[in-house]
Design a binder for these strands. Structure first.
Lengths: 343, 343
DNA sequence: CTGTTAGCGCCTTCAG
DNA sequence: CTGAAGGCGCTAACAG
């Protein structure tokens, strides 16, 4: 018999027991003699039996599977977060199905449908740039599938999120530049309907305010998270009638392309212009010391989000409670320091 | 009725038809009147019905799901490959379950068991560093679950792989340095039982041979893919009684840490020593122009691997045939060039 | 074109 | 401690 066809019934027949006994033995139920249990386990092993989780899950109405929706797997922040999610899930016996929205609302929709169809026990989401309302999450709610946002979230009642303290990070980054002596600090932002960029920008403003520095709209540059944005922004900065001597970039893409565009224009960094950029472990490990970074702890966020979600799954009375976990990002100067990231 | 409980039977009862008719309608079978089909679809929509894929898959003995096993999601090469896999899968109606081996054989084992238990239709694997034989893949073979290796593969009869042409890439990298005028070229390798590192090393040797340059064992440095390796290697190079003026690094981790260690020691790059390093899109986009890179096309490899696997699933007569797809890596000099990677 | 019947493989009462 | 029976939700073969 080919081993892809072995079922508990086959084992039962061979051993002259009932399939329910086999099921119990294989699930280590105490209601089976040690002796028969051992016989069954041995035979199962011998035949290369492998439980059909589809059938098991269907019966139990529980899949031990989490769904994850991220904008783009290949962005390092998200792949780190997934790694964190996966670690926690693996340790606690959960599988993970990963979906990409590619920043498209329609795909996010489809992703949710796929996950529902697969009867995942819970969902972790970082929303797309296009996502501005939450009607498609109501379906999860109605089906009592708990979900937790991480990093990019929507403000839905009774919904938990794991977030970076973006306001504080923006504040720290800007104050760092101020303390270094910068007098005209530009801010590279992201899509402003995303809270994270709004909060980073608020932090920027608060730091200026605290240090009695003037705030000017023309020093704020929005972005679609494309490399070209950093280049364009630098070109605009150069045209300004005054000298910009600091940049706080809320997105890593623009920060790096801006850095390179500045160099092409003969700027020395950080002498001529200092930069603090949001970033991630991989990028931080690679870029030159001239760039101070705000490190986004993707792995930790993934871990925390998965822990929170699984606890909500387990204590079903605690589904859909409002819990906000805020994680601090750390400002990293790399001048002389060694780094020890594996990537 | 809560929408998480709606089944085809509910719809059938409400509409006074049989559940099998509902099933047919929802699967767009031609054997249902347009009229009843529309009624059924409308009602399903109204009730927020969502098919239970567990039950469907169990019945059909087909999950439309691919399993993917990679050493580490957060390495950019792999997350790019996964993005490629996901794109193809999404377009062709497949889901993807992703597992990490974390370079551990035992976890790779567990991953395979999980995927088998979930009855995936096929598996894509890039093996761990610990994986040296293929007995655990025999289980897949016996269960007639097709699998395709990508990037890091085992030489198993009748098994397909999608690979980078590592020999050629190693050759190109080394020849590039030779043409630039380097006379003593060191080679940073990886774990030598992995074919990719063996092949890159062979390419290195072949280029030296072609150009009548001496080969010396002491210029080859193995590595466990840790940052410290690059630092150690540089320290050893500095101690040598002759001047090393070129490095071909087969792994990005060592390349980057070596680059930084060289700078700490006052080296100018590429004037004092030229470096060509294997890398990936994200890293390439970020590192400074002084590093020439061999770009690993992760996304393409993922796409091709998924296409190949799905074609094997679809044409079940073509399971377990031996097809090798070799993809060329491209050497990228970044001196003056713009780059336009989103990451 | 639609209904009836019979499972996919597993787990979980309920009996004994 | 073990067996018998039923059903999770769906689809496919066979009737009509």
């Amino acid at each position: 018999m080919s081993p892809d066809k072995i079922t508990i019934h086959d084992i039962a027949r061979i051993l002259n027991v009932d399939s329910s006994t086999v099921s119990r033995a294989l699930n280590d139920s105490p209601r089976v003699t040690e002796k028969t249990k051992n016989r069954i386990i041995a035979k199962a092993h011998e035949l290369g039996y492998q439980r059909n989780d589809l059938a098991s899950n269907l019966r139990k109405n529980k899949t031990n599977t989490l769904g994850v929706i991220v904008p783009r797997i290949s962005r390092h922040f998200f792949s780190s977060a997934i790694a964190g999610i996966e670690e926690t899930s693996y340790n606690l016996g959960y599988n993970v199905i990963i979906c990409q929205s590619l920043e498209q609302l329609e795909r996010e929709h489809n992703n949710i449908n796929t996950l529902v169809a697969n009867r995942v026990d819970g969902v972790l989401v970082s929303i797309s740039m296009e996502t501005k309302n939450y009607e498609h999450f109501e379906g999860l709610r109605k089906r009592k599938i708990p979900f937790v946002f991480f990093d990019r979230h929507l403000d839905i009642p009774d919904t938990s999120s794991v977030l970076i303290d973006d306001f504080q990070a923006g504040f720290d980054a800007t104050e760092h530049l101020i303390i270094k002596g910068c007098e005209k600090i530009a801010h590279f932002s992201g899509p402003m309907h995303l809270e994270i960029y709004k909060n980073r920008c608020e932090g920027y403003k608060a730091a200026l305010l605290k240090h009695d520095m003037e705030f000017s709209e023309e020093l704020i540059f929005s972005s679609r998270l494309m490399e070209q944005d950093g280049v364009d922004n630098v070109n605009k900065i150069i045209e300004l009638p005054y000298k910009v001597d600091g940049i706080f970039s809320a997105n890593d893409v623009a920060a790096i392309s801006a850095l390179q565009q500045l160099k092409r224009n003969g700027y020395k960094i950080p002498e001529d212009i200092a930069i603090v950029g949001f970033s991630n472990e991989a990028i931080s490990a690679v870029i030159e010391p001239s760039l101070t970074t705000i490190n986004q702890p993707g792995f930790d966020i993934g871990k925390r989000a998965a822990e929170l979600l699984i606890s909500q799954i387990t204590n079903s009375n605690k589904n859909f409670i409002n819990e906000k976990i805020v994680i601090q990002a750390s400002l990293v100067e790399r001048d002389s320091s060694q780094h020890n990231m594996a990537f």
